[in-house]
Nucleic acid binder design. Sequence first.
DNA 1: CGTAAATTTGAATGGATTCAAACGTGGTGG
DNA 2: CCACCACGTTTGAATCCATTCAAATTTACG
Lengths: 238, 238
Amino acid sequence: MKRRAICTDPSWVGRADCVHCTIRNRVLFADLTPDELNQVLLVVDDLVFKRGSMIYRQGEAGNALFTIRRGIIKLVRETPDGHQRIVRLMSVGDVAGIEVAIGSPYKHSAIAIGESQLCRIPVTVIERLDIKHPHLARQLMVRWQRSLDNADRALVEFSTGPADARVARLLLFLSSLTHDGRCADIGRQDMGAMLGISTETASRVMADFRRRGLVEETGDGERCHCNVDILKQIAHSG
Amino acid sequence: MKRRAICTDPSWVGRADCVHCTIRNRVLFADLTPDELNQVLLVVDDLVFKRGSMIYRQGEAGNALFTIRRGIIKLVRETPDGHQRIVRLMSVGDVAGIEVAIGSPYKHSAIAIGESQLCRIPVTVIERLDIKHPHLARQLMVRWQRSLDNADRALVEFSTGPADARVARLLLFLSSLTHDGRCADIGRQDMGAMLGISTETASRVMADFRRRGLVEETGDGERCHCNVDILKQIAHSG
DNA sequence: CGTAAATTTGAATGGATTCAAACGTGGTGG
DNA sequence: CCACCACGTTTGAATCCATTCAAATTTACG
């Protein structure tokens, strides 16, 4: 119910260097030629957001969409009873704020969970390229479908069944984002808001998992190692 | 957990008559000229599905998408623990199976809740038109975003808060589909599967609403009249 | 008309929430 | 540099809401 004012300005890394982008094959402009890319990158900013800072706000007339290069972003929407619910988490290669491509205001607030790096792509770029690049339209559709998949997943996996199964599924999802078995250790409040359970329940389940050795904190406190096999059993149990 | 085999064949009304379609301004081909429409309608079938019949099945390689002309469709997905969850309800003007437009298999099973009328549009039509019609691409994007909105809504409104608030929100949603204040009376099982509550709870809440005079069955048993104002209060309460 | 399916209602159980308090931690200003 | 405050997390105990299981009742349908 409390409203907090996090609106830290992002730090500007530079103009995006799409041509040498390490995740170029995973982003919107995958099908463009280097020449075309060079036109684009003049207005695409490469930004770093500190943890907790807001990238855009629900309801604002959006003039840009964002490709996530690093970190995890939460899309938050207000529930009818005034609480906040995390609608989905986005990670490397995902596009946040895609709705601006059809002239819609932002449908959620986007907030960086950990420190994150994003490319800010003005809608004008999309509109300009759209005319001569059927490929881009297709890439956009693929992103839309990916968002839709994630949305459905949020419902079917993260909002269904007992609390321990939901937490297990969330941990497995976070593990799947990294390829080293470790997973981002997101806060208990965010867990609750994502899973539709209270903060306390999220904390209790995690404490229980820790006692049972299913998750182990790594030194830094930012990530944790989890026992995927047993978590899968819990995730699939009714 | 039980699997039932409903696969009633749809009845064929005829080739679609897009030019005279009563909801043409609400469908995918809104921006095409009559001439272009005439090319299209040769392969677009106008079908009627009986209540409970399956329109397509999750996982199938889809070769068509569907515009809903009449009725309510449920998109169903299996949960990790083997139950079935309704991911969202679709109504007039919505496009079911849009994922086939990017070559994806169907992500859900689509089932008619009441008797429904749909236009079956082969993917080939989309692919053919796609090349010369930027408008169509845009229309598709708009549909994708609409599906995404509905998905988010399913999470934030229908999967959050106490059972009575969820039921109230669902009734309000169903009321908003018709413009005469009456709303489709969907079964208690579907209510449960949509709201993430048990069939019994859905039944109990509805019985309670009936006793309090918030919903009244109209004679036919297919629709009911509901007191929107009081339902809104319940919907917004924590 | 008879059977299967869906709905309704009851009673007991269990899981999650709520409220409260203690604990740890990070950041700020003195 | 340390004290202090704010914030998030953890844990406990009581309550409550929804589920589960069961049985009765109604509805749908061949």
